[in-house]
Amino acid sequence: MSVRDTGAVDSTFPRARKPQLGYRVDQVEEFLAVARRAFEGQPLPDDPELSAESIRLTAFAVQKGGYSTAHVDAALERLEDAFAAKEKRIAERLHGDESWLVEARTTAQVVSNRLARPEGQRFDRMSPLVLGYHVRDVDKFADRLARYFRDGWPISVDDVRSVSFRAQRGGYREAQVDLVLDAVVDVMLAVR
C-alpha cells in the first residue's frame, strides 16, 4: 500500500465487497514483496524460494475487507506465467532448448497415459462416505485435455486453472486430480 499526498491509502488490489471475505492484505503484500525480490534476483536471506509451481500453490487466509480474491488470483496467474517464462529461459541457457522440451514431453506423456484410462477409472476414488470430485465432471474435462494432447484441440491455461467440479460422495480423489491439472499447466507453460 502507499499513501497519497492527501493521506489517503491506496490498495494494491480492490477490496472484497461486503459481506464477502477477501484475502488478508498483509499476507498478499508480503508475498508480492517476496515475489518481486525473487523475480529481480535480489531475495533476502529469509525469503522462501519461489517458482512457478510454488506460486500456483500459494494460499492466503481470508478476512473481512480483504483484497478481492478474483483480482489477486488473476495477478497470481500472471506472476506464475512470468516465473515460468523466466525458468524456461534459464533452463534453455543452461541445458539448451531440447532439454526443456524433453521434460515437457515426458510430463505430457505421463498425463496422456492417465487421461487414456477408462472413464470412471482415471483417478483413485474416495470412500462412498467421503466427498470427492464429481466423476462425470472430471471425466468430461479429462476428455478435453486428452484431445488437447492427442490432437492439438484448443484449450487455454486459464481453462485448466479455472475449472471446477461438483462434489460427489465416492468421487475422484481431489488431490490426485489437482496434481494432474498442475502438471497440465506446467506443460502448457513450457511449450508457450
Rank of each mutant, 00 (worst) to 15 (best):
W153L: 13
R169A: 12
D158A: 13
G66N: 03
I90D: 07
L101Y: 10
E40N: 10
A183C: 07
G66P: 06
S54K: 14
Q109K: 13
I55H: 09
R37W: 01
E119I: 09
A61E: 15
V135G: 02
F31H: 03
D151N: 15
Y23H: 09
L21W: 07
H95S: 01
A38R: 06
P48D: 03
E77V: 13
D158L: 11
A183T: 04
E119Q: 07
L79M: 09
I55F: 12
V102D: 03
A190F: 00
D178P: 05
V187S: 11
R36Y: 05
P19V: 09
A75Y: 06
V111T: 10
G7P: 09
E77F: 11
G96E: 10
K86R: 15
D81K: 14
P45D: 06
V187M: 07
A38D: 00
H95N: 07
G171P: 08
R89V: 08
V110H: 06
D5I: 07
D139K: 09
A142I: 01
D178Y: 00
Y148C: 08
G96R: 02
I55K: 08
R192D: 05
V111I: 15
D46P: 02
E49F: 07
L129V: 11
L129N: 12
G152A: 12
T6Y: 06
M188C: 05
D143S: 05
L79I: 12
D124K: 07
Q20H: 13
A142D: 04
